[in-house]
Amino acid sequence: MSPNPPDTTLTRHLRITGRVQGVGYRWHMTDEARRLGLTGWVRNRRDGSVEAVVSGPAGAVHALIEWARRGPSLARVDEVVVGDAEGAFEGFEPRETV
């Protein structure tokens, strides 16, 4: 049995490192999150990482985390650090670099 039933709502913070900028990572993640029915946001960080907050049914959040470990075809993901997060969002959007 998984730690969270698939219909439990989860909100998670992701920090993705590797070659994840300049390869369409944010745009592909936005498409995947929307396809999965998730809400939240994704943005590049000036340190070269990508940061995201995702919220929705546990099964969909876990599916996006697994996708994040691969990323789009041109990406090379070294690490995805996942932590708890809070917030309520409408839709899923790419945000400006911070």
Results as ranks from 00 to 15, higher is better:
residue 23 V to H: 09
residue 18 G to F: 11
residue 88 A to V: 15
residue 24 G to W: 07
residue 50 V to T: 08
residue 32 E to C: 04
residue 28 H to N: 13
residue 86 E to R: 12
residue 26 R to V: 13
residue 20 V to A: 10
residue 72 P to I: 07
residue 31 D to H: 11
residue 98 V to C: 05
residue 57 P to R: 12
residue 37 G to N: 01
residue 30 T to G: 04
residue 45 R to A: 14
residue 60 A to S: 15
residue 72 P to V: 07
residue 31 D to P: 01
residue 2 S to C: 03
residue 56 G to D: 01
residue 30 T to L: 11
residue 24 G to K: 05
residue 34 R to A: 07
residue 41 W to Y: 10
residue 65 I to V: 15
residue 24 G to A: 09
residue 16 I to C: 06
residue 62 H to C: 02
residue 21 Q to I: 13
residue 60 A to N: 08
residue 39 T to G: 07
residue 71 G to H: 07
residue 32 E to T: 14
residue 26 R to Y: 13
residue 57 P to Y: 05
residue 49 S to D: 04
residue 72 P to D: 09
residue 36 L to S: 00
residue 29 M to C: 14
residue 89 F to N: 00
residue 52 A to S: 14
residue 97 T to K: 12
residue 48 G to L: 06
residue 72 P to T: 09
residue 40 G to V: 09
residue 56 G to T: 04
residue 40 G to H: 00
residue 47 D to A: 11
residue 84 D to E: 15
residue 94 P to C: 08
residue 31 D to F: 04
residue 75 A to Q: 02
residue 98 V to N: 06
residue 34 R to E: 07
residue 23 V to D: 05
residue 36 L to P: 00
residue 30 T to H: 07
residue 78 D to M: 11
residue 30 T to W: 03
residue 70 R to Y: 04
residue 34 R to T: 12
residue 17 T to V: 11
residue 24 G to F: 02
residue 68 A to I: 06
residue 9 T to M: 07
residue 21 Q to D: 09
residue 15 R to I: 10
residue 80 V to H: 01
residue 65 I to N: 10
residue 70 R to W: 03
residue 41 W to F: 13
residue 36 L to T: 07
residue 50 V to I: 01
residue 76 R to G: 07
residue 97 T to P: 12
residue 57 P to E: 15
residue 1 M to V: 13
residue 51 E to I: 12
residue 18 G to Q: 11
residue 53 V to M: 04
residue 70 R to D: 05
residue 49 S to C: 08
residue 65 I to R: 09
residue 40 G to A: 08
residue 42 V to A: 00
residue 15 R to M: 06
residue 84 D to R: 13
residue 57 P to C: 04
residue 80 V to F: 02
residue 57 P to F: 02
residue 34 R to I: 13
residue 66 E to V: 09
residue 17 T to M: 04
residue 5 P to E: 11
residue 53 V to Q: 06
residue 59 G to N: 02
residue 48 G to E: 08
residue 23 V to K: 08
residue 30 T to C: 05
residue 37 G to I: 15
residue 30 T to N: 05
residue 27 W to E: 10
residue 76 R to W: 13
residue 62 H to D: 13
residue 26 R to A: 01
residue 81 V to K: 11
residue 91 G to F: 02
residue 1 M to G: 14
residue 46 R to E: 12
residue 21 Q to W: 11
residue 59 G to A: 14
residue 23 V to P: 12
residue 1 M to F: 06
residue 19 R to T: 15
residue 76 R to T: 15
residue 1 M to K: 06
residue 27 W to L: 10
residue 74 L to D: 13
residue 7 D to I: 05
